[in-house]
C-alpha cells in the first residue's frame, strides 16, 4: 500500500524513515521461502506418531540409540538401523516461555518450550502443556500426541501429577 502510494506520488517506491528522516527505497521484489524437506528415511517416525507411539532408530550393529531418529550410524558407519519404541515418560530439564514469537507462529499464544530427559535415555524438545509457573525442578512429564492449530499432529510434553 505504502509502496503504491509513493510510486504514485514520487514516481519511485520511496519512503522517508520516520526517526532519521533518511530516504529509503522500498524494495519492489518480495521473496517467500518454503522448503520441501525429505523425510523418506524416517517415515516410521511419523507412522508411529499417528498410532500414538514415539519411535526412533537404533543401530543393529553397535546398539547406539538415536533420537531424533537418523538413517546412519556415525559410530560404526552402518546404515542398518532398527526402529524401536521409546517409553513416553521422562523428567523435565529446562524450559522457556516464548512471548515474542516469529511471525510464522503468530497464531499461537505465548508457548512454553521445554527439554525433558526420557527414562530411556534420549532428551526431547517440545512444547509443554499447562501453566509453566506450576512447574518445579525435577517435574515428571509424559510425551503425548496433540493436534496443532494448523491441523497436523505433533508430540508435546504434558506434566504428570
Amino acid at each position: 500500500m505504502e509502496q503504491k502510494k509513493s510510486i504514485e506520488e514520487f514516481g519511485f517506491p520511496l519512503v522517508v524513515d520516520e526517526k532519521s528522516g533518511a530516504l529509503q527505497w522500498l524494495d519492489v521484489r518480495e521473496l517467500n521461502i518454503r522448503y520441501t524437506i525429505s523425510i523418506e528415511n524416517i517415515k516410521p517416525f511419523y507412522e508411529g506418531l499417528r498410532q500414538g507411539k514415539l519411535l526412533t532408530t537404533r543401530c543393529k550393529k553397535c546398539n547406539e540409540l538415536y533420537f531424533p531418529p537418523q538413517k546412519d550410524c556415525y559410530k560404526c558407519f552402518s546404515s542398518d538401523m532398527e526402529w524401536i519404541e521409546l517409553k513416553r515418560e521422562g523428567t523435565l530439564e529446562t524450559l522457556t516461555v516464548i512471548f515474542v514469537r516469529p511471525p510464522s507462529f503468530s497464531m499461537y499464544d505465548p508457548y512454553t518450550v521445554a527439554v525433558a530427559k526420557l527414562d530411556d535415555g534420549p532428551k526431547i524438545l517440545a512444547w509443554l502443556k499447562g501453566d509453566p509457573r506450576k512447574i518445579r525442578p525435577g517435574q515428571r512429564v509424559r510425551v503425548e500426541i496433540g493436534r496443532r492449530k494448523e491441523g497436523y499432529m505433533m508430540y508435546e510434553l504434558v506434566p504428570l501429577g
Binding site: 516464548i98 515474542v100 510464522s104 499461537y108 508457548y111 524438545l125
Partner: peptide, 8 residues
C-alpha cells in the same frame, strides 16, 4: 514445530 527464537 516448536518456534524457538534466539532468546528462547
Amino acid at each position: 514445530n516448536f518456534g524457538l527464537t534466539f532468546p528462547g
